[in-house]
Every structure is written in structure tokens, then in C-alpha cells.
Design a protein around this nucleic acid. Structure first.
Lengths: 321, 321
DNA sequence: AAACTGTTTTTTCACGATAAAAGACATTAT
DNA sequence: ATAATGTCTTTTATCGTGAAAAAACAGTTT
């Protein structure tokens, strides 16, 4: 104990941002710009500025910056309301992917890589300054990330001092799944009790279709399951109408996200099994028979827990990327 | 909706800190100094610097700053190892209480005052800059506070934009207590199943004594219950051995803390009833009869929920201080 | 009038800088 | 040899600052 978590553990990573005294990256603009380019393919002229704003989820200020650049690069002709598309976007019109990430995303990825790439034993200290330097960002962003991240239960703060890594251990996985099972069983029961005319039933039908679709093309699309899985479980959790239950799914989603990324062993088989369990689970929900729902939910959660556990060796040893 | 949460709602509050370009207050030192003064009453000479450090929970650097000042003010004679007490501390030796608070505490108090003092309707926007100005602190501290506070489920962030107040509503109280009941029932069952030689049983005995003591002097000490309540429930939650359950008690503790502060109606009666329920609950735990534990736990949680709910009017109207 | 565009103000986000506090190292005393 | 003290270095906590993005305001166009 007492050893540092990030002491020159990685290659001297090229700074994520341009090094010099930069205040704030314009990733919001770049990401929205890229998404707007994709929109360009479909229409002859763009809608009004406020409409574009809601469509892209950004302010009108950002929309105008996007339009200005599109005019500059000859993608559109822009005169007040008229925004006519002049040409199709080329690959080099897009901003590079890595420039569209949030700082929070950059930090999280970097942090999780270190965490899972081995050598990150429970009890290690986390050094804000060192982390910031290695990732190439300011300390404030790292601090804020760590505070946000702390709710996942993997790190803990010593007052007026460093953070302590608790480790991605078997114990962690068991505590996490214990809560998950408690919450999901309750949510599933609440779901089944929802009135027939509730919108969730059509959502469920749609998800069922997607599951069947994916099952039929499992050989090629098995890696798309992870995203479908999250949407399915979030739908169920939402039926609890409890913000703490709904929010807790963020913890689960985060863990499974990185788990999927790092543990590709038998991915196809695992996902195929999970799809089958989901379909049984969906059928149980549709039957509105609480006993069946409970059984189907339990069965799926049990195998989900098993999958997670087998990926965590008893004594922490590095997982290979 | 859309109205601001803290638009000049309060008196132009004297800045919490000294206004000018101050980097960091020395509240850690001041608080430790005060605590060290109390220590002075009991001994003729102080222990070694490292020992003092662990005793006060601060670094040796801070210990030495404390000793230096104690020497200056003639409280002790300090020469290397020898730290002899020269006189008893006087009231004016102490730093004023308000200077010993963490910035986080200052911000939280200020924020909760506004939240509970009325006029804080669900859907309102929270403005970091405005909050920071009104409290008299930097924006960074406010940001960090809001991030930390967000796990209580009372506020929510709009990406790249403001925070939204969800309101201290009946729905919130119900969602909170739902989880609390789930967690505590499980923890209580785990507690009762703990082996006889576990240290928790002596902890429980001690708490039982404190309850009886408090019950016998309820007329004068009823306001001390809140603190005892927290210690009791934390002991039980710890038996779950689940970090998410243990951590969730922070949410409950925070809510009940402010609830107790703002709703003094029938405080004595409420606490008297609660002590009785606790004693029954403790007896049930000691019996190790899961049925009895479940019943006693349910009964107490039900009345706790009722207490919380009655303090929240159906439609949010200000609570008087 | 409603909805849009043009312009200005405010707020958020992220940085570097600095004092407080922690921690590490070197020295000395038991 | 251990454990303290004395000194120096590193890290954390907090602020002010400036660019990005949002929001508000004002003027046009349909």
C-alpha cells in the first residue's frame, strides 16, 4: 500500500489537448459539425437555425459557427434563411473523431485503461497532479472527474489528501450485482404491473423485434448486443419510477461497458445466450405473471453476474487488451 | 420553469471568505488548533508531533503550525520534545467557530438554506456563477459541490448548460424511503445473522445503553437523538458489507439532518417514539429471530417515513425556519 | 404576430497560479 | 535502531482569467 497508481505507468502520452494555455476545446462545435455533415447528405437545404439547434442539441451560437464554416468550405450557400447545399460532404470535411470527445470522456477512458490494464492494485494512491500531467489536462478537470467517478464505488477520498483506489475486485462485482438484482427484480415487477395502455409495452415490442433481428444475424452483428442490452435494462429500470434505481443503472452501464471492451472471450456465445434470456424475460413481462417475471429475471441476472465474475480473476492480475 | 433558483433571493450575504484574492483558507489548522486546545485541559505536556498528528487527524506540518502559535500565545513552552503546558486555555484562545468550517460545508449550508427556505420550486435553474457570487466563493468550489451533491438526486445537470432543481418534493421522499427500506431490511437481516463473537454486538450493546440513557433524560436531551439515530442506522447498514448500501446512507443522513434542522414540530415526542422503536429493534436483533427483526425494522421505518412525509406539504410551500 | 436572423451579454468550462496542507528526506536525540 | 525533530518538496484546495457555448435581446422577414 501507498504506492502510486499512475507513476509513469504508461508511455509519456501525447497531451490530449494542444499543450499551450488553452482554455476550453471546441469539441461541442466539432462534434455537432460532423453530425450536421451527415444531415447534409439527405437534404437540399437546411432548416432554420433554432430548428438545427434542437436537432443537434446545441445552441444557436454553435449552429451559426457551423454554418459559417460550411459556407467557407463551399458546402452550402448561406444567405439569411436560405441555406442551400452545394455539394456532398467529403471524408476530409469531417473533423477527426478524437477531436470531438469531451474532456470528461478523454479522462475517463484514460483512467479506465490504467485501471484495467493491470498493475492497479487495491489500496494504491491516486495523484491528481500526476494524472493531469500524464493525460495532458488541467487538474480541475481531473478533480471533477474523480468526484463524479467516486459514485461508482471504485475510489475513495481521504480528506485533504489523496484518493485511494479500491480496485476492480471480485468483492466489488458482488456488491454491484447484489444491488442490481434487488433493483431489477423490483423494477421488473413494477413493469409487469403497468397498465396495458402504457407506452412501455410498445417500447418493449420494438425491443423484442430488435432482439429477434439481432439473433438471426448473430454471426456478424454479435458486437451490437451491448448497446441493445443497455437500452433494454434501462427501459425496465425506468418502470420503478425511482430516481435512485434509474441512476444506479449508470454504475452498471459503466462497468459493463468497460467489461465488454476488455473481455472479448466467448463474446459471441455469451451474447447469444443473453439474447435468448432477454427474449424469455420479455415473454414473461408480457404474460404479466409476476411469478414468471421473477423467474426469468433471476435467471438472466444470475448468468450476467456469472459472466462478470469469470472475467475477474481471484487475485488481480492484468487483463490483456 | 426557467426561473432562476438563486436570483438575489437572499440578503447580499457578506462574503464567506475575506473577499480579496485568497487561495485557500486555513480552516484545517484552525479547527485542529481548537481541538488541540481542548486536549490541553487534560495534560501537563503534549505528546510527540507525529502522535499529535494522528490524534487530530492532520499532518505534522499543521501540528507544528499549531504548536508554534501555542508557544507564541504563551499556552505552552516548546523546546524540541518538551511541550509543557503553561496555562489553561481561555475562551478567547479559540478561533471562532465559523472560521473552522470547510468551504464545502459553507456552500452546502447556504445551498440547503435556499432550497428549504422556500421559493425553490422544482424545475428552476441553478446558476453556478450567481451562487458563487452570492456565497462569496469561487466558481470551481461551487461546481465541485454541485457535482458531489448531485448524487443526492435533488439536482440534475443539463449537458453544457445549467443545473436543474428537482425539488424537495413528496415524490423525492417516497423514492428515498423506498430504497432506504429495501436496504435496511436487508442489512438488518445480515446483522442478525452475524456470528456471536462479532464486534458489532458489543457496539450494539453500547448503543442500547445510550438509548436508555437518552430515554431517561428525554425532557432535556431530546435534541441529541438525531446524532444517535445516525450512528445506530449506520451500524446496521455496515452489516450489509455492501459499499453501495453503506454509501447510500449518506443521502439519508443528509436529508434527515436538514429535515431535523428545519422541522422542529413535535420534536420531543417524535424522538421519544423513535427511541422506543429503536429499543424494540435492538431487542429483535439480539433475539436473532429474522421474523422479529423484519417486523421491528418495518415498524420503525414506516414511522420514520411518516415523519418525513408530514414535513413535506403536498404542494411545495415554504417551511418557516 | 410569429418565427427567424443579427448582435450582445452571460454562463459554463478549463486553465495556470498560489497559499495551505501533506508528505518526504535529512538530521539528531533517546 | 528507533523515533523524534528540522527542513525541503510535492500535492491539494481555491481563486481569477479567458475562450467556448449558451442565452438574452433587438431588429427583420414572411
Amino acid at each position: 500500500m501507498g504506492t502510486s497508481y499512475c507513476a509513469s505507468s504508461q508511455q509519456p502520452q501525447a497531451t490530449a489537448c494542444n499543450g499551450s494555455g488553452m482554455s476550453k476545446s471546441n469539441n461541442v462545435y466539432k462534434d455537432a459539425y460532423n453530425r450536421c455533415l451527415r444531415l447534409l447528405d439527405e437534404t437540399r437545404s437546411l432548416p432554420s437555425e433554432p430548428e438545427l439547434g434542437t436537432l443537434l442539441g446545441v445552441s444557436r451560437t454553435t449552429v451559426r459557427t457551423i454554418l459559417a464554416r460550411m459556407e467557407e468550405t463551399g458546402l452550402i450557400a448561406w444567405n439569411k434563411r436560405a441555406k442551400t447545399v452545394l455539394r456532398e460532404p467529403r471524408p476530409d470535411d469531417f473533423f477527426p473523431e478524437e477531436e470531438t470527445d469531451t474532456l470528461a470522456e478523454i479522462i475517463e477512458r484514460s483512467f479506465m485503461r490504467r485501471l484495467l490494464a493491470g498493475g492497479a492494485e487495491a489500496g494504491m494512491q491516486i495523484n491528481e497532479l500526476e494524472l493531469a500531467r500524464e493525460i495532458g489536462v488541467g487538474t480541475t478537470s481531473v478533480r471533477e472527474f474523480l468526484i463524479r467517478f467516486s459514485r461508482f464505488g471504485l475510489i475513495e477520498k481521504r480528506r485533504n489528501s489523496h484518493w485511494v483506489l479500491k480496485g476492480f475486485t471480485r468483492a466489488f462485482a458482488l456488491e454491484l450485482t447484489e444491488i442490481r438484482e434487488m433493483f431489477e427484480l423490483r423494477s421488473a415487477a413494477a413493469f409487469a404491473a403497468l397498465p396495458q395502455d402504457s407506452a412501455v409495452w410498445t417500447d418493449l415490442d420494438r425491443l423484442e423485434d430488435e432482439h429477434r433481428q439481432l439473433a438471426s444475424e448473430i454471426a456478424t452483428r454479435f458486437n451490437e448486443f451491448s448497446e441493445l442490452d443497455e437500452r433494454f435494462h434501462r427501459l425496465i429500470h425506468r418502470a420503478s419510477h425511482n430516481r435512485f434505481i434509474v441512476d444506479f443503472y449508470d454504475v452498471i452501464a459503466m462497468i459493463f461497458h468497460y467489461h465488454y471492451q476488455w473481455n472479448k472471450a466467448q463474446e459471441r456465445e455469451r451474447n447469444e445466450v443473453a439474447i435468448g434470456e432477454h427474449l424469455a424475460y420479455i415473454a414473461a413481462l408480457k404474460s404479466r405473471d409476476l411469478g414468471k417475471v421473477d423467474a426469468a429475471c433471476r435467471k438472466h441476472l444470475k448468468s450476467a453476474r456469472q459472466t462478470l465474475l469469470t472475467s475477474i480473476p481471484e487475485s488481480r492480475s492484468p487483463l490483456k487488451p
